[in-house]
Amino acid sequence: MEPAGVQPLESGVSGATDFPSLLRRNGLLRAPIETNVTKVRDAAILPTQATTILAFKFADGVLVAGDRRATAGNTVVYDRADKVLEIDEHSIMAIAGVPATAWEMARVLEHSFQFFRRTQLQEMSVDGKVRALSKLLRDNLGFVMQGVGVVVPIFATFDAKASPSARLYFYDAMGAQFEAADFAATGSGSPAVRGILYYENTWGKKPLHKIGEDEAVVVALRALDTASEADTATGGIDRHARIFPMMKTVSADGIKTLPEERIAELFHKRVA
């Protein structure tokens, strides 16, 4: 398909209200498939979210972390995948699922928020952003039913003016959104991670929302290391190649990517 690019206008304006429909009109985004398609195979809706991503609220905001492994079946295809993505200055999306669909969704989302700000002359509200992702997931349902394109993301955002400021959402593959009070984890390694985060939050020295940044990094590292212990699709920490999980925080100051050296240091001191 040829990208549409800039074409002469006929009327001067097309009246698009949202970015995905503008993309569809220009042939840049596929139309949602009817969800009443027959299942290709019974195995089609097996969960194929081979990865682990997690997020929790800590003292400054939200920490989002993800391992770096990308798999195809039993094969590791990539060990430096970036599953924690910045969508705008105060929003992070972490992705579990089929990479092609997930990265495209993140790109559509990022451009949608900017398109909204430019056309409407104001930032999209947190609720609007959360719904926008939900809509993309629902439009993708046809592909999920066919067994291709399952995406189960986490969305974290920080709105200094609202209370609470830190907001965290996770989704199912059909687009239902759930606001998490303290933490969220998705992907094949998530059962172990949920156990750890629940334990830390309930019986740890402090509840998660009171711990500082260093402590938060340690919790995330330990959780991902545990997940990789039992789940082949989760990369955990690769000591040979010195590959560490990707971690970002979102707080009143915006998004910060934690430097690898710092994660490495905390790993050697507190985890290894």
Partner: peptide, 13 residues
């Protein structure tokens, strides 16, 4: 709006 739509589709594609 026309200018934003054109720039946005180009920037996305």
């Amino acid at each position: 709006m026309a200018a934003i739509e054109l720039a946005s589709t180009e920037g996305f594609a």
